[in-house]
Write a protein that binds this DNA or RNA. Sequence first.
DNA 1: GTCTATAGAAGGATAGAC
DNA 2: GTCTATCCTTCTATAGAC
Lengths: 194, 194
Amino acid sequence: MPQKTHSKRAEILRAVKELLWERGYEAMSPRDVLDRSGAGQGSLYHHFPGKVELACVALNEMAAEERAAVDVLFAPDRKPLDRIYAYLNRERDALRGCRLARLANESVMENLELRKPVKRFLEHIIDRLRSSLEEAQFDGDLLPDFEAAEVATTLLAVVEGGFVLARTHWDANRMKQALGGATQLLRIAERKAR
Amino acid sequence: MPQKTHSKRAEILRAVKELLWERGYEAMSPRDVLDRSGAGQGSLYHHFPGKVELACVALNEMAAEERAAVDVLFAPDRKPLDRIYAYLNRERDALRGCRLARLANESVMENLELRKPVKRFLEHIIDRLRSSLEEAQFDGDLLPDFEAAEVATTLLAVVEGGFVLARTHWDANRMKQALGGATQLLRIAERKAR
DNA sequence: GTCTATAGAAGGATAGAC
DNA sequence: GTCTATCCTTCTATAGAC
C-alpha cells in the first residue's frame, strides 16, 4: 500500500507541504488542508492518524527535497570556495522564511519526530559547508587557523538569521546585507591566505 | 487613566509578556492570560479591546526593556571591540529563542503595529553594532575595507540564526558555535589590521 | 478509499451583575 | 474595575454511509 497512485493521499501531502511553509504547523488546520487539496475528512483520517503524523510525513519529504537541492550547489566538481558562495548566494524568497527552520519556534518542535527532519536538513548543510571550508583551507585558499566546524555553523546561522531579519523588516534586502557581510569577512580570510 | 496602579492591568501585561516569549502570539490564548494573571475576563476586555492590542502593548514594553539591556552592553566607556564581544557573548538562554524575534514567522508579523516594536529592537542592535564597528575601524583595530553596516547585519543574523539552530537541535551549544565562528572571523579582520 | 455529518473541546469576545 | 456566565466560531477527530 505505501507506493501506488494514492490520488487523494498525494494531493493532501502536497497541500500540507505548501501550508507548512506558508503558515507553519499550529496555524495550519486540517480544514485548511482539505480545502486546498479538495479531499474530504474521511480521506485525511484514512491515510493519516492525525495532524502530527501528517506533518511528520510532509516534513520528511520536504527535508529530503531540500537536501537534494543543496547537494546540487555543493557539486564536487566545483571548487570548494565556489560551493560555499553558491550556497550563500542561491536564490531565496527571503520573506517566505526557511521552508523547514521556520518551525523552529513552534512548540511542536519539542516533539522529536517533527524536529528530526528539520534537524537533519540543517546538519546536512553544516556538513557540506564544513567540508568545503576544510578543503579550501587545505588548498591554501582560506586561512588554516580557524575552526571550519564553527564557521560552518556561523554561515548557516547567517542564512537562518537573514530570514528572520528579512521577515521582521519585511524587506528581502536584509538577507542580502547579512550575506554580504559574511562574504566580506570570508574574503578577508581569503586574501590573507595568499 | 493611563498611569495609576492598575493592579489587574499590570498583572495581565506581565502574564502576556511571559506567554509571548514562551509560546508566541498565536499559541497564546486569552484564557492562558487570565489563568496566569489571576484576572477575570472582564478585566482583560476592560483594559484592552482585544488580543491584538494586548500583544501590541506588551511587545512595545518588551522591546523597550531589551533595548535598554542592549545599551548597557554598548556602554560608551568600553572600547568599541569590547562592546561587540560583550554583545556576542552576553548570557542567553538559547533554547528559549529571541524574546522578540521569535515572532518573525508568525502571520501576525504582517500586522505593521505588531511588527514595529520587533523591528525597532533589531534596528537598535544593528545601529549599535555598526557604529562600534566603524569606531574600531577608525581606531585601526579592525580592517577598514569592509562595510560596517553589512557586517553589523551579519552579526545580528548570527545571533538570531543561533537561536534557530539551538532550538532545532535542542542544544544551546549551537548558539555558542555560531558565535564562536563569528568571533574567529572577526579576529582575522583584527590581526590583519595590526 | 472517499464522502458527508457530527461531536467535543478550545479560542476569542460579549453581557451584565457587583 | 472586576467578576461570572454565556455565545459563536474554529479546531481536531470520529461515525458511518457509499
